[in-house]
């Protein structure tokens, strides 16, 4: 029992960090624009395949190419598909669902849809914390994720652009008055979000494998963290991701792994119905 609790706490925190960095783009974009971009989890899957495909050639340098690459892909996606219709959340929602399913169909054309691909880890040993065995690679992922989240939190509170990202949801006009361009800020958020998605894909895909269906569950996670945490709030993401991480690992450990999406979604649905502004943010819709 005790090991199980320790296991839940540690693994929960590790997955929380990965889920946190995967959600940053999705949540901030939503906070800034008031829309959900369902295509982002599909790019997460694309990023994982980029890593699988490029690592035989680039080895340990793969991420140096893939991370900025996915960042650029997300910026291009924003400029091409989202910007022209960013004032209509319904259109964005539809367009990005179709885009995500389209990307999945396209990837399924090139990569067998039934097959799971592997990503080679940087570190291969295990460590033992309170009798819980953890892969070093996963621990590295958790550490990288938390450093990124705290770094982002620091940036968002201490730089102009960061304050603008957090400030816009409260008052779009206020930010324009101080001379910041909303489109540029959104493009930057997409870029940063894309880089973090690639990092998430590297560690998440490295642990669970890479397949064309691997975007659906992260979509569930992104939604839940965004709605639980509240829009456009790094603090909200950090609180919500820990809750979701622990809840997920607890369900997997103590109840049944196959019901985790149901439990997590029930949390998101309950929050949407009973506390639409989330734990630390503004109301959706």
């Amino acid at each position: 029992m005790f090991e199980n609790v320790v296991y839940v706490i540690i693994y929960g925190l590790i997955f929380a960090s990965l889920y946190g960095i995967m959600t940053v783009g999705f949540s901030l974009v939503c906070g800034l624009g008031g829309f959900f971009d369902i295509a982002l989890p599909a790019y997460f899957m694309v990023g994982a395949f980029m890593i699988v495909e490029l690592s035989p050639y680039l080895g340990n340098g793969t991420m140096l190419i893939v991370a900025p690459g996915l960042g650029l892909l997300c910026v291009a996606h924003y400029l091409l598909f989202i910007r022209p219709q960013r004032d209509n959340p319904y259109r964005v929602f539809f367009a990005t669902i179709l885009l995500a399913l389209g990307v999945e169909s396209l990837m399924a054309k090139f990569f067998s849809s039934g097959y799971t691909f592997k990503i080679a880890p940087l570190l291969s040993g295990n460590v033992n914390i309170f009798d819980v065995e953890i892969r070093q690679q996963l621990l590295l992922g958790g550490a990288v994720g938390w450093i990124a989240l705290f770094g982002l939190r620091y940036i968002s509170h201490n730089t102009n652009i960061g304050r603008a990202v957090i400030g816009i949801p409260q008052s779009v006009r206020g930010s324009q008055v101080i001379g910041l361009d909303v489109v540029r800020i959104q493009a930057i958020v997409y870029g940063v979000g894309g880089v973090l998605l690639a990092l998430g894909a590297y560690f998440y895909g490295g642990y669970l494998g890479v397949s064309v269906h691997m975007w659906a569950y992260p979509l569930v996670i992104m939604f839940t963290i965004t709605t639980v945490g509240g829009l456009g709030s790094i603090n909200g993401i950090m609180i919500a991701t820990v809750l979701v991480g622990w809840l997920e690992v607890a369900v997997v450990t103590f109840i049944d792994p196959r019901i985790r999406a149901f439990v997590i979604l029930s949390l998101a649905i309950a929050i949407l119905i009973f506390r639409p502004r989330g734990l630390a943010g503004k109301r959706i819709g």
């Binding site: 659906a216 569930v220 939604f223 999406a261 649905i269 949407l272 639409p276 819709g285």
Partner: peptide, 25 residues
Amino acid sequence: VSGLSFEMVSFLSIIALTNLVLSGY
């Protein structure tokens, strides 16, 4: 709930239901 929130809840509900139907329970 209405607007985007209703859309979200209904959307998330079918993913949750699919998961439930496929689960061990």
